[in-house]
Design a protein around this nucleic acid. Structure first.
Lengths: 227, 227
DNA sequence: ACCTGAACACCGTTCAAGT
DNA sequence: ACCTGAACACCGTTCAAGT
């Protein structure tokens, strides 16, 4: 939560010998909140603890954000802004490229903020970062012969799959609800042998994601009018 | 929240003229909790309101469930149990059938409990209903030439896509974060014309889901060894 | 066995007040 | 303009007690 002293730090200089508290701002509040979420979990983010972390009265953040929902929106937007959605200079990319990159890079950022998943999945935020990349993706897909409506659906489906997969990864493969690992596999082998057998190979999330991603893209390809 | 009087209703008969309160049970508690979630939203489900709805001291439910997490687990399991996962008598189904049915029927039940989505996506529950159907699906897929590991990945990917899509549907297409519908489309047409153009056709969730579902299945088909 | 009730350590948010 | 502090109406959960 380190941050260089910004302008308007007259106050900071007054309390020499004390901990220097940078001036509050919407941005710094959201940054601190995201740290809390990432490190301690979404359930641990309260307006009161946020105030504590900022070294400020809990009510101080209400000057910058009207309520907790607004804070959540800010957090989601901050995560969206982190996604690497750079559009390549070189214009010659296949129609699969924007879609693959959209999925993989979204997934990468989500994996860095697993505790944000609930918020990201729940709150609709029109992030410029996403919109801009989608706009470009549509152009590429249209140039490849798809319609704009198809392109939007493709992006939407990939987003859904990626978010859903991130959730599944978070909740473990055939996870441990309360019982121990051994107990579960024991019950599985007895009652659901094929499932148990198929799982013993291990759960490889990256591989599974790539399988689903490529399958979808292969399916989309079939919709393309013949050249 | 109506429920026929069950056995052990000696108490109920004592307070004649009063509202008859059926005996508490884990099942009836979860049923009532699910009603609250469906009708008033997940945020409105508190142990205290649950007690109120049951006509009982809030602490009474702790006799049947150790804490709120256990209540959540019960709710998720209840939703999973509702999914129509009947295995057809007639054994001659295509390998696509179990996968299509898995996705569509999961989606149908999720759409009936939209407020449960966060919980369903978050909590790993080994529902017998799901395991049993998965076991059958694997058998069908193996008979069609796929490996068990592939079959498990297919089911997993479909679950991810279905859950993710349910979330997206809940959060609206290019939803309204705070601004009005008109403002959004205005900004969109100005800055992201292709996106705006592609969206004007309207958002058809069912159609989009079916598109993604079939694309994935088409992609899976390519992995099948030639007969 | 099943339920009650007080108590504790928390919440988000309002509103008036300070500097 | 920016932050404080008391107050209100909530939470989940513990623990001892009632019947």
């Amino acid at each position: 939560v380190t941050q260089g002293s910004t302008s308007g730090s007259r106050r900071s200089q007054r309390n020499a010998g004390q901990v220097v508290r940078p001036a509050l701002s919407r941005e710094s509040i959201i940054k601190t909140a995201l740290d809390i979420v990432d490190q301690r979990g979404i359930a641990q983010l309260s307006m009161r603890k946020l105030g504590g972390e900022l070294g400020v009265d809990p009510m101080a953040v209400y000057y910058y954000l009207p309520n907790k929902q607004a804070l959540f929106d800010g957090l989601v937007e901050a995560v969206y802004a982190e996604i690497d959605f750079d559009i390549p200079e070189d214009g010659t990319v296949s129609w699969r490229y924007p879609l693959e990159t959209f999925g993989r890079n979204l997934r990468k950022t989500l994996s860095q903020h697993p505790e944000m998943l609930q918020l990201v999945a729940t709150r609709p935020v029109l992030s410029p970062n996403i919109l801009r990349y989608s706009e470009w993706a549509i152009a590429i897909l249209e140039a490849a012969g798809f319609t704009g409506a198809q392109a939007v659906n493709f992006v939407s489906c990939l987003r859904s799959f990626t978010v859903g997969h991130a959730f599944a990864e978070l909740s473990e493969p055939v996870g441990a609800p309360a019982a121990s690992e051994e107990e579960i596999t024991a019950v599985l082998t007895e009652r659901f042998p094929k499932l148990a057998e198929a799982i013993t190979g291990g759960y490889r999330p990256d591989q599974q994601y790539e399988l689903g991603l490529q399958a979808m893209l292969d399916g989309f390809e079939d919709l393309r009018p013949r050249a």
